[in-house]
Amino acid sequence: MNYEAAVEKLKFEYKEIFTKENGKPAWAYHKKSSPLQLIMPTIPFVGKNYFEQTKKVLLYASAENLSYYKTLDYVDYLDEDDKAINRHRLFFDNSFIKDKRTFYPKVHIAPIDDGRLAVAAYYLLRKRYKFPQCTPKEFYEKICFANYGKFSAETNFNEDYASDKSKLYDSKEYISIDLNILKPDVIIMVKSMLNSGKQRNVLKASGLKLDIFPIYQITPTTINCYIQKYPIENYEQLDSDIKLWFENINGSVTGKTKENYKSLFSYLDSIEAEHIE
């Protein structure tokens, strides 16, 4: 498998399931242009160099937040299936059109857009698998990433259903497609999702030998309530590239939250030390 073939196969398989399900799940966001039709779920971002890696990594964030979509008074790319089905790549490619100096490319996944999850994955992979030093743009082209929850709940607020096994069930077939086509060696994902319902069985059903790293969802709440309990003494010993990535985190990680984020590196050290392949 190569990059081009994987993308085309993912798109084909996603469309097959989406058509077969015919409007399910009903709780997900519908199109403004066609209120009876759901917004197409997107395939994972596939790095152009993903299949060349010694360890192929699939990073799963939680679920898409489309709460802003309700405030729009116009139809945008989400109503166009051919664009929506690969929106992580669409956003990534567009990130450099206006500003080639962009540090964290926009990929339509908030914790990757602002760097907080990107830094965690980069640090863990550098430490565990000796991933080479690189920029975020270069790093993304070496891995794959997606939301584990393939749909966004149609509400007036951002509903995170990381622990809702009934909603996660509606993503099961899409996740199986991800695994069967991308055949990752390593999965990094939100531990509350992994522990919800039978998600471990979903991953095991692929038949792949997977190194799975379940981690906290990297939000201001988990940073300030849980991650900050870990020591930050090792921050000064971090490689210069890790510090640079940390310094460029933006969005919701500011002030005291950003200072507490420094504990993430000790937290990830503990995850890596306890991991059994």
Rank of each mutant, 00 (worst) to 15 (best):
D81H: 09
S263N: 10
F92T: 08
S67L: 14
V119R: 02
N158K: 09
E159G: 15
S240D: 06
D73N: 10
G251V: 06
I215F: 03
T71E: 15
K262W: 04
Q133M: 02
D82R: 08
L203R: 00
Q37L: 08
Y29I: 11
E247D: 13
C134W: 11
M189H: 01
K31F: 04
F45A: 04
N158H: 12
G251N: 03
L210W: 10
N156W: 10
L124K: 02
S206F: 01
K165M: 02
Y60H: 06
A153G: 10
K106I: 12
I271F: 15
D211A: 07
V57L: 00
Q199I: 00
E236M: 08
A205K: 01
N260I: 15
I212G: 01
I215Q: 05
A121R: 02
L264G: 00
F213P: 05
N234M: 04
E247P: 09
I249C: 11
N250W: 13
D79W: 06
Q199W: 01
I187E: 00
A5F: 11
G255Y: 03
I276F: 12
S196P: 01
Y129T: 02
A5C: 13
Y122C: 00
L38G: 14
Y129S: 04
Y226M: 14
P220W: 08
D170E: 13
N65T: 04
A120W: 03
T42P: 08
L244G: 11
S252H: 11
F213I: 03
I276A: 15
K127Q: 04
L168I: 00
E4H: 10
K9H: 06
E21G: 09
W27I: 09
E21Q: 15
E138L: 09
E4P: 10
N158V: 14
G197Y: 02
F157E: 15
E272G: 14
L38I: 09
K183E: 12
K130M: 02
Y148K: 00
K130A: 03
Q228S: 14
D170P: 12
G255P: 03
A5V: 12
D82Y: 13
I223N: 04
V253E: 03
K15Q: 02
A6H: 12
F51A: 11
Y216S: 15
A6Y: 15
Y226N: 14
L10P: 03
V253Q: 01
F51M: 11
H108V: 10
S266Y: 12
L117G: 02
N147Q: 05
Q237E: 12
A118D: 08
K142L: 11
Q228E: 08
P136C: 09
K24D: 14
S192T: 01
F45K: 00
Y68E: 15
Y50G: 05
D113M: 09
L125S: 01
F103I: 08
T102E: 07
A61P: 01
L268Q: 07
E259I: 14
P41S: 05
L38Q: 08
F265S: 12
D81M: 12
Y169W: 05
A110I: 10
A146P: 07
D73C: 08
D211P: 11
G255M: 01
T42R: 11
S67M: 12
L38M: 14
N195T: 06
D82K: 13
K9Q: 09
I175W: 02
L208S: 03
S171Q: 03
H275C: 11
T222L: 05
